[in-house]
Structures are given as C-alpha cells and as structure tokens.
C-alpha cells in the first residue's frame, strides 16, 4: 500500500471573517508554505471590514464579548497539536490559551475598575465609563509567534475595538492558524483581520489611514520606521502605543495598560433635582 499523499493547507489572509488571497496575487515562502503577501489595497480592505464590525462588536454586551473570548480559548486548547506542529512550544500554546481566558474575564470588569462615579462638588450625577476607541491597527511582535500575537489582539478586542493586525513576517503560519481558531469561535467577521507579508507595505498604509483610530507599534523593531509611523499617525491624532523591546517578557502579568491605552473615557453629567 502506498503512503497517503498529504493535503496541504493554503495560508491566506483573514479579512471580514473570510480567508481571501491577497488581491495582488502574490505570496512568499515560509516553512515550505506559500503565504499571502498582503498589499496596501488589502490593508485598506481590512480597515473597511474592521470599521463595519465596530458597531456590532462595541455594541455587544460585555458578557457576550467575554463569552466569545472564552470560546476562543476553548478552540485554541483543541488545536494545541496543530500549533506545536508549526513549531510553537507546548507551554507557549498553553500560555496563549490562558491569556485568552484572562482577558475574557476583563470584559465585564474593566468598566468598573477603570470607571465609576465621580464625587463632584454639586448636585449632579456624574459617571465616567470607558468605551472602545474604534479601529486599531496592530503590529504584532516578531516573536513569540503565538503568545505575542494573542497578547496584542486580546486586550484590543475585549473592550469592543476591532483590529487590523500586521502579523509577524517571519512567523505568519501561527497567525493564519489563529485566524482559523477565531473564525470558529463566534467572533463576528471583521473584528479581527490579519494581514501577512511585509510590514513595510501594509503598516505605513494603516498608520496613515484616516479611518483608523489607534495604532499599536509593538512589533516595529526599526526605530526610524517607528518614528515615521508615529508621524503618519499624528495626521488624525491616532492613539499610539510605542514599540516594546525585543526582549520583552510576554509571559509576565500583562497588567491593564494594553487595554486602557485603547479606550476613551466618557463622562456623563446630569443634575439632581425634583
């Protein structure tokens, strides 16, 4: 009996809940797989998808968002072997799964921890509550391939933002496989969009895009590129998260900073009276 011929996977982009090839028809070779080489047009399409998803996702209840993030952890747990086959160490897959669980629980707690009643000196009801900033462009860290990616996506979306992620150019297979996890977790299409390819092609487009509200430069390692992207981001005053050092410890307690940096605080006043 002859050996079975394996069915290979096509690694494509993840935009609006679908898996299209790059509109440019290009790909590049990583770990013997042809990975889509996203174009500027793909980046713009991803922003359109992310914007379209904002209303539903930001408007979903915190309980609902929390359950969906927890569902992502469930799906990831079940695909442990698949990520290991891509070279992601077992403990990294576990840590990434646990990170989804950790952030899932924040959805209905952060507004209480980060907002609340303000004791103003007058007869007014006054309440501050966080709201998502909108569409966030994210440059994922180069490594660790899975934990790094999860650690930048989960804090952005748990509060109701939608994201366009430029995946690590050298480790895109884990990113596309994570997209498959997301696609089967009841996450509405467009909440997470993932672009593979060269950062130099997609990220400047995202940084300059007038319908993007914030940019997370975590994975940018070239200081000059980071400065240039920040200059582009200033055009519509995007909220900017600056790059983190390449030796950043992704297994450490993430704290609240990645969530709060992508939130707006809205304060509502109303007089008290009869």
């Amino acid at each position: 009996m002859s050996e079975r011929i394996a069915v290979r996977k096509t690694y494509k982009l993840f935009i609006g809940g679908k898996f299209p090839r790059s509109e440019s028809g290009r790909s590049y070779l990583v770990q013997s797989a042809n990975v889509s080489l996203a174009s500027r047009k793909d980046a713009r399409d991803a922003v359109v998808a992310a914007r379209a998803a904002v209303k539903g996702w930001a408007g979903a209840t915190a309980y609902n968002r929390g359950q969906i993030l927890y569902r992502v952890a469930e799906m990831l747990e079940g695909r442990r072997e698949q990520f290991m086959a891509l070279g992601v160490p077992a403990d990294e897959v576990d840590a990434a799964t646990d990170r989804w669980v950790w952030y899932a629980g924040w959805s209905d707690k952060l507004p209480q921890v980060y907002g609340g009643a303000n004791p103003v000196a007058g007869p007014y009801f006054n309440l501050s509550a966080p709201e998502p900033t909108g569409v966030v462009a994210v440059v994922a860290p180069e490594t660790p391939a899975l934990l790094g990616l999860v650690s930048v996506i989960a804090p952005a979306i748990v509060t109701g933002n939608t994201v366009v992620v430029a995946a690590s150019p050298t480790a895109p297979l884990a990113a596309v496989t994570l997209a498959e996890v997301l696609a089967t977790s009841d996450l509405p299409g467009g909440v997470v969009n993932i672009l593979t390819g060269r950062l130099s092609e997609t990220v400047p487009t995202l940084a300059a895009h007038m319908d993007v509200n914030a940019i997370d430069l975590t994975g940018v390692t070239d200081p000059e590129l980071a400065a240039d992207l920040e200059v582009k981001a200033a055009e519509n005053l995007k909220r900017v998260l600056r790059p983190v050092p390449v030796d950043h410890d992704w297994s450490a307690d993430p704290g609240l900073g990645r969530m709060t940096a992508l939130l707006e605080t809205k304060t509502v006043w109303h007089p008290k009276g009869v």
Partner: peptide, 23 residues
C-alpha cells in the same frame, strides 16, 4: 465625545475626567 452634559452644560470638577475622542 469625552464629556456629555445632559440637561446641563459646561460643568467642570476636579474629580471629573475631561478630554476628547478623535481629533
């Protein structure tokens, strides 16, 4: 918008966060 005044306007207080969305 970062501050919403309902049935009042231009109220400020040191305990009340002030600042904007977007540009």
């Amino acid at each position: 918008a970062g501050v919403v005044w309902a049935n009042t306007f231009n109220k400020f207080d040191p305990t009340s966060p002030f600042g904007g969305y977007k540009e």
